[in-house]
Design a protein around this nucleic acid. Structure first.
Lengths: 144, 144
DNA sequence: TTGAAAATATTGAATATTCAAGAATTGAAG
DNA sequence: CTTCAATTCTTGAATATTCAATATTTTCAA
């Protein structure tokens, strides 16, 4: 008897990796118009509520581990997109804030990202998109 | 008027990245029992049809770019999990084959991966899982 | 048939990420 | 209080990835 054994393309882990890679590639392409990597857009977006966010909080939110985030923030500080402030209530922490320049950039990036979402809506459909989002959220929930 | 502006957690690109990260982390954890990174499992799995696959073909299938794949294959050749053969029909190409040792390892890895899929089925549900897979496949299709 | 362009894989240098260790601060138990 | 463990962030070394350039082979048009 031949052994079929699930092909890799049927594994959820693989499908997620493939879809993520493709969508991310498209987004990267748009954001590259402003010369900004996807992770930096995420950082700006999280900080654009104007509140201070600690490095740990940020790392979780933008899906980077701590040392990688530290080094990326170093670059963004050099570019004056964000700045550090020591947390007065807990001096182990560093609070990150977005600068005015960061806000301006973030707006441009947002519209590039919205372009992409619209493009997806068109080719993939309104209904599929919201259903996919719902299922992804619930998968993430069930994994915690 | 306050500016709501979609939070990052509602973007499809972000949800995909988050879900992928989480599922991948879990799979990584299982496969680490055999000390093998997820990409190597994918490579072994693709090669386990016994046919020869060129580097380009492989790179596409396992979602790695060429130079990264070349270097990973170097390691796997050292570990005698796979081997290179020059393609007799097109000598620009290198055909990759899985070794007997690779096959044995691949089987162990498969069952670790199946464990994970079962775990997902339990916590996330049969129906959600297959629906999610369907939607991901169709998203990937619509992106080409 | 020849020569230029395309396809395939690898290499080396530049860059980025990760792991493990360190420094500073806080919390909390004795 | 004091001391020891836990938390938070950063650093430096080790590792991995990527970009650009190279070598080889094939394709195909002139």
């Amino acid at each position: 008897m031949a052994k079929p054994n699930t092909p890799i393309t049927e594994h959820l882990a693989y499908l997620l990796a493939q879809a993520n890679r493709e969508i991310n590639r498209q987004l990267e392409l748009r954001l590259s118009k402003e010369g900004v990597p996807v992770e930096q857009w995420r950082i700006l977006k999280v900080l654009s509520d104007g509140d201070g966010h600690s490095m740990g909080e940020l790392a979780d939110a933008v899906l980077l581990n701590h040392p990688t985030l530290t080094k990326m923030i170093d670059r963004m500080v050099s570019d004056t997109l964000v700045y550090r402030v020591q947390d007065p209530n807990d001096r182990r922490k560093v609070l990150m804030f977005i600068s005015d320049r960061g806000k301006v950039l973030c707006k441009k990036l947002n519209s590039l990202a919205v372009d992409q979402e619209e493009h997806i809506l068109e080719s993939y459909g309104d209904k599929s998109t919201s259903e996919l989002k719902r299922l992804l959220e619930s998968l993430i929930d069930s994994s915690n």
